[in-house]
Design a protein around this nucleic acid. Structure first.
Lengths: 119, 119
DNA sequence: TCCTCATTTCGCCATATATCGAAGTGTATA
DNA sequence: TATACACTTCGATATATGGCGAAATGAGGA
């Protein structure tokens, strides 16, 4: 029950749902997620902690940067199934498709200059 | 996105998750749900409104009694898929199996005397 | 019609959560 | 070693949510 509620609570916030959807096409640096959502770094950090706790994302640290990604096939079935459900539930969402376009543009920009904007 | 969050928010509370699981084997009267969760009628009413809003349960009124049930095959795919996910995510849950036992005992009792307890 | 009773709505309170800015942590680089 | 910087943790605040009891609603039955 606890694991189940960790997942549903994590997915009951729009910002966190959008973050999960950002990561479908590959890992992102924290600063890229900050840029996409236009929220304070501390707010994003808290959201990522909630998603990590639920097992919905994994983290890889590389120097100063923290990269987040969706979990692989080793993840618990409820987590994997929740991600499949989310994907299909939001297939038609205008918010998500608009995010997809913005993410595409964002990925063309330099990571270093991106991070510098949040000082 | 709104529909998606209605579902995840509805399923982010333990009482509401348990209610959904109660209904797997058929419809229940509000007073039976009140008895199962041991919460105030007004609290249950609020939970049912949240579940109805999300489309996760349906309601049938018969005189003074309100019967709740899971939605049929006419329900939106995200709703049906969420219910499938919930079922599998909680397959091993001790809380849910204990509830199943208590529900079995409850169903043997008379509805009229059950309702009278909440006056 | 009036009363009973199952349920809902409302008003209140306590707790949880989303957000921010400031301060702290840890890593790379000058 | 000292500074810069990406991120996290902390403390404060505003809003959201879960809970209750009291009052309102609505459907049967006396």
């Amino acid at each position: 029950m606890r694991d189940c509620l960790n997942i549903t609570k994590a997915l009951s916030d729009e910002s966190r749902v959008r973050i999960v959807m950002f990561l479908r096409d590959g890992e992102l640096c924290a600063c890229q997620i900050i840029e996409m959502l236009e929220l304070a770094p501390s707010t994003i950090s808290r959201h990522m902690a909630v998603l990590l706790q639920a097992g919905l994302v994994e983290c890889r640290k590389c120097g100063k940067w923290h990269y987040y990604r969706l979990p692989g096939t080793g993840a618990p079935a409820p987590v994997q199934n929740a991600l499949v459900w989310l994907e299909s539930a939001l297939a038609q969402s205008p918010v998500i498709s608009a995010d997809g376009k913005r993410l595409k543009a964002l990925l063309k920009r330099d990571l270093k200059t991106l991070c510098a904007r949040h000082k």
